[in-house]
Amino acid sequence: MRNIPETMKALVAYGKGDYRLELNYPTPECGPDDIIIKTEGCGVCAGDLKCYHGAAMFWGDEVQPSWVEPPFIPGHEFLGHIVELGENVKDFKIGQRITADQIVPCGECKFCKSGRYWMCQPHATFGFQKGNNGGMAEYVRYPKTAVISEVPEDMELKKALLIEPYGCSKHAVDRAQITNDDVVVIAGAGTLGLGMITYARMKNPTKLIVLDMLDNRLEKAKEFGADLVMNPGKEDVVAKVLELTDGYGCDIYIEATGHPASVQQGLNMVRKLGRFVEFSVFGQPATIDWSIIGDRKELDVLGSHLSPYCYPFVIRNICNGNLKTEGVVSKTFPIEEWEKAFEYATGKYGDFKVAITF
């Protein structure tokens, strides 16, 4: 006899814009290698919003196939306590507080076998496919291959909800290979950008510059460690960065806005032989002159995906205060108010991170 209910509250995605709150959705079954958690909370990511609104990278179009597999339960920034363990699970115990990487690696492809599990070829993830439902539900199943990290019991929920986004932020900054000789520009000071700023500050670059169109975000960026903040809507930020660097440009540009204009801005701003890190999920294609990358500047252009091997560092440094979190998770909503949570998660009311709690 199971000691958890047979049904639960869950937000279920059936199609583009067709998300429904189900009050009696079946609770996930616990297989012999599985773990079931009772969800504490789940952040609402920009990717969740773009998926809800039908972005082609999720639902496909004439040039790419659909990636999502409805019906699915969205949400990948979640954590909770173990309430059920499969008979083969030996390393965890009932009541333990845990979270997991967004990726659910297969363990069999060449990427998994070489330790590069975050680029797993099948690329199953929590919150976008029906086989790995996400955290916008009262209970979630972690399968055998989930990459699980323990969360300290005394870690405040609003801080713990930042483990997944800050893990992604850390990986992006690590890709940038920042040294203390570098002038670094981070474009975008939302939740992910703030995670990058507070971590990049630990790298002690010569100058850390942050760009955003919203002044309240720029204020938070300064609080989190930016040396200089600029609003591209109010000043010529490319000219300003060139002026600050004797006409050369910044050494590193990290793109975290998700807006195509930021890509061109970065290519214009970064110096010859500089490094451009692309992090964002775009709702539409970005068109640029590729000759800037090759013939004109010989740039290193790097992508950043997910948060491999980042959770233990992030958990430890959020807990000890090295990574700033104050005010990032600004509002929480019960699952019954998911539509309001999605609305506030757009940032239109000045919020950084919004979460659904249980």
Rank of each mutant, 00 (worst) to 15 (best):
F92T: 11
G15P: 05
T27P: 12
Y248K: 15
N3P: 05
I98T: 04
A160I: 01
A239G: 13
F224P: 10
Q265K: 08
Q284A: 11
I35M: 07
G321I: 07
I94D: 06
L208I: 06
F58C: 08
G350Q: 05
I335W: 12
E138T: 03
V263C: 05
M119E: 12
I209M: 04
F126S: 11
G131F: 00
L208Y: 09
E223M: 14
W338A: 00
L218D: 01
K340G: 00
P71C: 03
I335S: 04
E339N: 11
M119L: 14
E298L: 11
I293Y: 06
C30G: 12
V314F: 11
P32Q: 14
E255C: 04
E326N: 06
N133V: 02
Y25C: 02
Y311G: 01
A226C: 02
A56L: 09
A226M: 09
V173S: 01
L157P: 11
G188W: 02
Y139D: 01
V314Q: 10
Y309W: 13
T287E: 03
E150A: 14
K93I: 04
G321S: 02
L162K: 08
C30W: 14
K90C: 08
W290F: 15
E108D: 14
W67V: 13
K170A: 06
S149K: 00
G274D: 02
D174F: 05
S330R: 13
P122E: 03
N88G: 11
